[in-house]
């Protein structure tokens, strides 16, 4: 992710938050990019198609551990989001499809590269729980430390 991607986010995506009267909620990505540039354990990625950002991923790679008793190291998805226009309620089919799955696959790839056997953990927002169930990510129930969001975790891939 670069400052150019951040500008895309603020110029195009974040306008929706202004309309929803939540302009301040758009700023976490600014902080995330800065953190990724300053601390090795954080990484920020963007999917860019035809000059515009369509998906953003922010991961932590060193401190998080598996919800399993063995406490395996894993890649933790701090934030994953897809552009507001790729939905069926706007046009059928959406302009781009599969962006979320690609970001999640990339998180697993990064985990594999780091020697974590592609283990990935995340907390889904309530509206997206169906997606994580659908892509076969085991769920571990609500996490009181994350305001009750459901924790999902992919296990090891052993080639």
């Amino acid at each position: 992710m670069t400052s150019q991607h951040l500008k895309d986010y603020y110029d195009v995506w974040a306008e929706m938050l202004e309309e929803a009267e939540q302009p301040d909620e758009g700023w976490p990505w600014d902080y995330k990019l800065r953190q990724a540039q300053q601390e090795e354990r954080f990484e920020a990625y963007a999917i860019e198609v035809e000059g515009i950002v369509h998906g953003l991923l922010y991961i932590e790679t060193q401190w998080h551990r598996s919800g399993l008793p063995q406490r395996y190291p894993l890649v933790y998805v701090q934030a994953l989001t897809v552009a507001p226009w790729n939905r069926k309620d706007l046009e059928d089919p959406p302009y781009l499809r599969g962006v979320g799955t690609m970001l999640l696959t990339f998180a697993r790839e990064r985990s594999q590269q780091l020697g974590y056997q592609s283990r990935v953990g995340l907390h889904s927002i309530p509206e997206a729980e169906g997606f994580y169930h659908r892509v076969g990510m085991p769920s571990y129930g609500p996490d009181p430390d994350k305001e009750g969001l459901i924790y999902f975790e992919y296990g090891a891939v052993r080639p």
Partner: peptide, 19 residues
Amino acid sequence: IEDECDGRVEAGLAMRAYA
């Protein structure tokens, strides 16, 4: 799969307002 879920894929506490 994403169509079935209407593109609802957001993860992370910070994404709740955006979603």
